[in-house]
């Protein structure tokens, strides 16, 4: 059985007095539909520290994507506050780069390279020459070296998501926000992308806030998992998962954690929701 060697120290090294990178305090988020106001998440608290692979996990309707939009600045909380590096989040900005689930998030009128360069230049963070340099470096890291001059419509879904990840990371954001980035991919590509993301993290140690509805993906990707309950989303638990990856997903602890989360989310609701929610 593979033993957990990676980064056991990471969350434990955080002293009680350490300052979090992202501090979400008592946040309630609501969105309006045509007929009603829906409370998506209710008084949610969590803290993300530098280097975390922090996963928001929950079934559909737990407001995890809404929370991510709140952190991204696309929505304002009706209650509570979201602080990034001690400053409240008001509007979207290039310090929180978002990777969306949809493939169609790259600008179709720009080449892959230009897509990565554009936000760096337009936000005024990098001069053009430096931006091109960085873009090339990050595109190489996500294995898109051959596709600098391709247009997004010429890429496959997985390649588009890779380009989006490179675009997000090249900006050097304080935190990378990922909204189910692999959900629309086929199973094999998803597996590969998860592995690549972990390798990338090993190398660069960025901070990422990752939304998923897959328990397995959460345990593999996350170093820390925030489990949310649905309707409205409330914090159910915060768990550690930094020792798990693809290599040890057959070990007993992995299964135990998966089962624990599964029970947490579905045990009392199994009659209402059916069994197809099991991962």
């Amino acid at each position: 059985m593979p033993t957990a060697t990676i980064n056991r120290t990471e969350t434990e090294s955080v002293a009680p007095g350490a300052t979090p990178l992202l501090d979400v305090k008592g946040v309630t988020l609501q969105y309006k539909t045509k007929k009603q106001i829906v409370t998506a998440s209710y008084q949610v608290d969590f803290q993300v520290f530098p280097g975390d692979r922090f996963v928001l996990l929950g079934p559909s309707g737990c407001g995890k994507s809404t929370l991510l939009k709140g952190v991204g600045g696309f929505m304002s909380p009706v209650e509570g506050e979201i602080n990034l590096n001690g400053k409240p989040v008001h509007a979207p900005g290039p310090d929180r780069m978002m990777v969306f689930q949809e493939f169609e998030q790259l600008l179709p009128w720009k080449t892959v390279l230009e897509n990565v360069v554009f936000p760096m230049v337009t936000s005024g963070k990098y001069a053009r020459a430096e931006a091109v340099d960085r873009a090339k470096r990050y595109l190489e890291k996500v294995n898109l070296t051959k596709f600098f001059d391709a247009y997004p419509h010429q890429l496959s879904g997985g390649m588009k998501q890779r380009a989006s990840i490179a675009r997000g990371m090249a900006m050097g954001p304080a935190i990378l926000l990922m909204d189910e980035p692999f959900a629309a991919l086929d199973a094999l590509t998803r597996l590969k992308m998860q592995e690549e993301l972990l390798e990338l993290w090993e190398e660069l140690r960025f901070t990422v806030l990752f939304v998923t509805h897959s328990i397995q993906e959460a345990v593999i990707i996350g170093s820390r998992i925030l489990v949310l309950s649905p309707h409205p989303g409330q914090v159910r638990a915060e768990l550690n998962a930094q020792q798990f990856n693809h290599a040890n997903q057959d070990c007993a602890e992995f299964h135990a954690l998966q089962q624990r989360i599964h029970d947490m989310l579905f045990a009392e609701r199994i009659d209402a929701m059916g069994q197809h929610h099991g991962e």
Partner: peptide
């Protein structure tokens, strides 16, 4: 909506948002 959010994510606002994102899109 995704392209709009991507543009705002880059910090584009006002006429730059229109000229650099909405127009080509």
């Amino acid at each position: 909506e995704t392209l709009r959010m991507a543009g705002r994510n880059y910090g584009l606002k006002g006429w730059r948002y229109v000229a650099k994102l909405l127009m080509p899109a």
